[in-house]
Computed example of a mutant assay.
Amino acid sequence: MAAGSRDLVAARDLVFEYLAATQAEAGRAVPAAVDQLPDLLRDECLHLAVVYAPPGALLLAYAGDVPVGCVGLRPATLPVAVEVKRLYVRPSYQGNGVARLLMEYAHRHAVDAGFSRLVLDVMSSRTRVIDFYRRLGYVDAEPTPDAVRYSMVSLTRRC
């Protein structure tokens, strides 16, 4: 997790933007503030330091002093696996390699923390994102219960 309070505010803003966009994509009401998120998502957004505590991490990307993207790593239920969560780059910074750079750091963190596998679920409608993960070496995995429930694609990659 980012160490400073400035980084925590930036992380919360980025994760909220990601969650709000996801709510819109899913056809749900778009929240204007964190307290309008569904309970589980609101709790995650308010307690990022707990959700992404070591050996997990919440990595932030900056363009100068401007926070532009994030990706979370949370230990998974599978032994020695870490779940990739909330990969997000602000729209005005997309297409500049920020997501690839965040994922490179995420992969490096996973190895350094002793994980052997990365896992993730992504909305099946996000075909560009799925293609991006496949270019990074991710392959289809056994669907998780959440993936089945929410029509998501499960992917995995060895560290």
Rank of each mutant, 00 (worst) to 15 (best):
A147H: 04
M123V: 12
P55H: 04
L120P: 08
L118G: 09
L87R: 12
G137W: 07
I130T: 03
V50E: 15
P79T: 10
F115A: 01
P75Q: 05
V71T: 11
V68P: 02
G56F: 00
M103Y: 05
V148R: 08
I130C: 03
Y150P: 04
P75G: 03
L78D: 13
R100K: 14
Y105V: 10
N96H: 14
Q94L: 07
R117S: 04
L60K: 02
P75A: 07
V111Q: 11
G64Y: 11
A99H: 11
D140W: 01
Y138F: 15
A76S: 13
N96S: 14
M152T: 05
L102Q: 03
V68I: 13
D121P: 02
A81V: 00
L58H: 01
L155Y: 10
A141N: 09
F132L: 11
D121Y: 08
A147R: 04
H107Q: 15
V68M: 04
S125Q: 13
V84F: 11
L60W: 03
F115N: 01
D146M: 11
D121I: 07
A106T: 11
P55K: 02
E104N: 13
C70L: 12
R135F: 05
A113S: 14
A141T: 06
D112G: 05
V119Q: 04
D121A: 09
V84G: 10
Y93D: 12
V50T: 15
V82P: 00
V122K: 02
P91M: 06
S154R: 05
R149M: 12
Y133S: 03
Y105L: 12
G97A: 07
A106F: 12
S124W: 02
C70N: 12
V51K: 13
C70A: 14
A81W: 00
A81L: 01
G97V: 06
V51Y: 12
L102V: 02
V71K: 03
V66H: 14
V153M: 12
L120K: 09
V119S: 04
V122L: 06
R90F: 03
V71M: 09
M103F: 10
G137K: 08
M123L: 15
S92Q: 13
S92K: 09
S92F: 06
V139W: 07
R86L: 11
P91T: 11
A141G: 02
R108S: 11
T127R: 13
A76C: 02
G64F: 12
L60Q: 05
V51H: 12
P145E: 08
M123N: 15
P143F: 07
R100P: 04
Y133L: 02
L58Y: 00
A81K: 00
V50S: 15
H47W: 12
R86S: 10
D140S: 12
G72H: 10
Y88T: 03
T127N: 02
K85D: 10
A76T: 01
A141I: 05
L136A: 13
H109S: 11
A110H: 00
G95S: 03
V122F: 03
R117F: 01
L118I: 07
G114N: 03
L73E: 00
P54D: 10
V148T: 07
C70E: 10
N96C: 12
V129Y: 03
R74E: 07
S154H: 06
E83G: 03
S92E: 15
V68H: 02
S125K: 13
A53D: 09
A57M: 06
